[in-house]
């Protein structure tokens, strides 16, 4: 809505915010580490001779999806309040794009 009124009482807020920020920082570092780790796994999956493409392609796609979710929720703050509409539009776009590609792969064959 148009009128966010920022009720600001610095004395009360500071402590709460500091705690909140620290928590968030922790989440970001954890997810960042995880993302690097996932990337390493992806490289490994592609490089390892023992996996056929039938395994490694879907597997790294799965890892990619996980990374996107980390990115959106931990770095772009989609988990915070007030992000419902961007989330709606993002998922709306994902659904539309997915259905389109799915239709191509299953019934249309170009």
């Amino acid at each position: 809505m148009a009128n966010h009124t920022h009720v600001q009482n610095p004395k009360v807020d500071v402590q709460y915010r500091r705690k909140k920020n620290a928590e968030e920082m922790k989440h970001q570092i954890v997810s960042f580490t995880l993302m690097i780790f996932l990337t390493l796994i992806a490289f490994f999956a592609v490089g390892y001779e023992g996996f056929s493409a039938w395994f490694s392609v879907p597997f790294i796609l799965l890892l990619a999806v996980v990374q996107v979710i980390f990115q959106l929720y931990y770095f772009m703050h989609m988990s915070h309040k007030g992000h419902e509409l961007p989330a709606l539009f993002l998922y709306g776009g994902v659904v539309v794009a997915f259905v389109t590609i799915w239709a191509f792969l299953t019934v249309v064959w170009i």
Partner: peptide, 24 residues
């Protein structure tokens, strides 16, 4: 608005997409 994205190929029934695509 939503369904509008799921129907584009009705302009292409005669292109030869096959009976399954056409039916859907």
């Amino acid at each position: 608005g939503f369904l509008g994205f799921m129907v584009w190929a009705h302009h292409m029934f005669t292109v030869g997409m096959g009976p399954i695509a056409n039916a859907i």
